[in-house]
Each structure stands twice: as structure tokens, then as C-alpha cells.
């Protein structure tokens, strides 16, 4: 019984230690650490390395926010969340923000009371089939067995797609991506469907990636982005403009390499406002003038982060596609820094 009593005492101590939350920004500053919800592991987006250091595309967003607010990109407590626990973790205040490839949908935004601050990756659901199957379009998949991760929006999208095209399929429910790879390679299903970025990452791990093709159809819109709780707009602004700073920096040609030079002052007023040598944007945000410089010092601008984590030089090898700047025909479009 001794142990249980002790645990009870610890419980009460823990309860007593809790304090009523003020603004999240002040909380984070007071705590000196940002609690950031990430995935328990998704290739290219969030993964712990051999030393327990988290790296990846989503992780960089967390680090950038920490750099902006706390002046320390390593002052982040990464909280691994699963698809089932992520929203409660955010709603209950266990994490300050979620950067966990979460699709921005109406119900999550409105009903679950979250605020998606932007989109850091435009994804869409695709199909992968073995080349031998001789299929060139998803509409030819009548009667196919499909490996699908349960409990995700992909499951619903798949049902919608097959119903609207009047064809049938047989689902093979799968829990994790790793399991899906095994099932697909073992021939338990003809088709594997998930987000196109996930398919590309999965195909890259195959011994002979050339034997498998991604079908051209993208059957859903999956805008993935960081999110915060409803009702704390100051904090939402910080996260939103941290993301926008990375996107704008790429548009303006500010990179981690030339930032020091540009920070001395340029003829481009928007660059000056971004880097804090002109105007008082940082002050309006509740931060100092150099906040965006620190954001960019973490991993560079959006394009650099993309290339480093998931771009064509990595094993995942994703093309920019929809995630190119609007000036290059993509969807990335940050509101101006003014």
C-alpha cells in the first residue's frame, strides 16, 4: 500500500502545481519551453534520430516558433501524439500547438474549436499499384483489394471516390504505414492508398521502386498545417506569421545563406520589414524586431526546409508541385508583411 499512497501524494502534488492558464504566448515565455505536438513518426515530417533529436518538416515549424518566441530553437518539448490523441492533447493544453500533418477540414476548424494557422504542405490522396497490374488510371480499379489505414480521412475519401465512379472495391484495413508496406509487398492487396507524400516515401523504401507506379488521380484535398486552440488569437498570430515568414522569405529570396547580409539593410522595404530593420512588425506580434531572422536561422526559408527534409535530393524525393510559390505556379501564397 505504501507505493499507492506515495503515488497518490504525487498525484495531489501534480494537481496542486497546475495553475490557471493566461495567454499561451505568456505561458510559453514563462515556461521557457514550447510544448509542440508532433507525430510519433512520419518519414520526412517528424522522426527522432539515434540521439533522440527530432527532425523533419513539421518539426522545423515547431523549432521556428520556439526560435521566434524563446530565442532558442532547441527549447521545444516534442510531445509525440497519435492520430487518436492529437486533438485532446491540444484542446486540453498539454501542447501549445500541433504540427502533425493534420488536414484542415471544416469540422476540425469549427466543431473541434481549433484554428488552423496556415498550410505548410498541400497533400492529396493517391494510389500506388504494382506495374504488373497494368492499370493506368484509378477508374480501372473495379473489384480491387485496397490497403487502407483505418480511422483517417483517407478511408472516407476512398469510399466517396469509388461510389461516385460506380465501381466496387474490397478494403483491407491496416493500422500503421509500416504494416501497410508489408501487406502491400506481400500481395495482400492490389492497391495501397494514402496521402501522395506518404506513397512516395513508401515507394522509395522498396527494393525495386520502379516496379510500382503512382496513379495520376489525386482524389482528395489534404491541406496539412499547424493548428492552435480557438480563442487565443495572439498566440495564433505568432504561429501563423512564423509560417508566413518562412514562405515570404522564399518568395523574396531571403535564404539562410544571405540573411546576414540582407539584415544589414536593403533597398527592398518588404525584406526590411520582414527582417526587422524597418517598421515595428515584431513589436505588434509581442516579440522583438529580429524574430523573423531567428525563424529563418533555424532551417532557412520554406524552400530550403522542403529541400532538406522531403525534397528531390532526399530519399523521399517529393517534387514541389502544389507546394511551389504562387509565382512558380504553386499554391504557396503568404499575405504581405506590411
Amino acid at each position: 500500500m505504501k507505493k499507492s499512497v506515495f503515488l497518490g501524494a504525487l498525484t495531489i502534488a501534480g494537481l496542486a502545481a497546475g495553475a490557471v492558464a493566461a495567454g499561451t504566448l505568456d505561458d510559453v515565455k514563462a515556461r521557457g519551453k514550447l510544448n509542440c505536438g508532433v507525430s510519433t513518426g512520419l518519414v520526412g515530417f517528424a522522426a527522432p534520430d539515434a540521439n533522440g533529436e527530432w527532425t523533419g518538416f513539421d518539426v522545423t515549424v515547431c523549432r521556428a516558433v520556439a526560435a521566434a518566441v524563446l530565442n532558442d530553437a532547441s527549447a521545444v518539448e516534442f510531445v509525440p501524439t497519435t492520430g487518436k490523441t492529437r486533438f485532446t492533447a491540444l484542446a486540453s493544453g498539454e501542447v501549445d500547438m500541433l504540427a502533425r500533418n493534420t488536414t484542415w477540414t471544416f469540422s476540425r476548424d469549427v466543431d473541434l474549436k481549433f484554428e488552423f494557422v496556415g498550410v505548410n504542405y498541400y497533400d492529396g490522396q493517391g494510389f500506388m499499384v504494382p506495374k504488373d497490374l497494368g492499370v493506368s488510371s484509378a477508374k480501372e480499379l473495379d473489384g480491387a483489394t485496397v490497403c487502407i489505414q483505418t480511422g483517417t480521412t483517407t478511408e472516407l475519401n476512398l469510399a466517396d471516390f469509388f461510389r461516385s465512379n460506380n465501381i466496387s472495391y474490397e478494403p483491407v484495413p491496416i493500422e500503421t504505414n509500416a504494416e501497410a508496406q508489408q501487406q502491400y509487398l506481400a500481395g495482400a492487396c492490389d492497391v495501397y492508398t494514402t496521402d501522395a507524400s506518404g506513397l512516395a516515401a513508401t515507394r522509395a523504401t522498396f527494393e525495386s521502386p520502379g516496379d510500382h507506379v503512382l496513379l495520376p488521380e489525386i482524389i482528395s484535398k489534404e491541406p496539412l498545417g499547424p493548428l492552435v486552440r480557438h480563442g487565443d488569437n495572439e498566440w495564433g498570430d505568432v504561429v501563423r506569421w512564423t509560417l508566413n515568414a518562412m514562405i515570404t522569405a522564399e518568395e523574396l529570396g531571403v535564404t539562410s545563406a544571405n540573411m546576414g547580409e540582407l539584415a544589414a539593410g536593403t533597398n527592398n522595404p518588404e525584406i526590411n520589414r520582414l527582417l526587422g530593420t524597418e517598421g515595428t512588425l515584431g513589436e505588434m506580434l509581442g516579440l522583438d524586431a529580429e524574430w523573423a531572422q531567428r525563424v529563418l536561422a533555424v532551417g532557412g526559408n520554406y524552400g530550403e526546409i522542403f529541400e532538406k527534409n522531403i525534397g528531390e535530393s532526399t530519399p523521399i524525393g517529393l517534387a514541389r508541385g502544389l507546394n511551389a510559390q504562387w509565382t512558380d505556379g504553386g499554391l504557396l501564397y503568404s499575405p504581405p508583411f506590411r
Partner: peptide
């Protein structure tokens, strides 16, 4: 799962 999500060990 975390280990598999490193590009080096995926798969």
C-alpha cells in the same frame, strides 16, 4: 515506429 520514420530505416 519512430525508428522506421527515419528516411534511413524506413521499410
Amino acid at each position: 515506429q519512430g525508428i522506421r520514420s527515419n528516411a534511413a530505416w524506413n521499410g
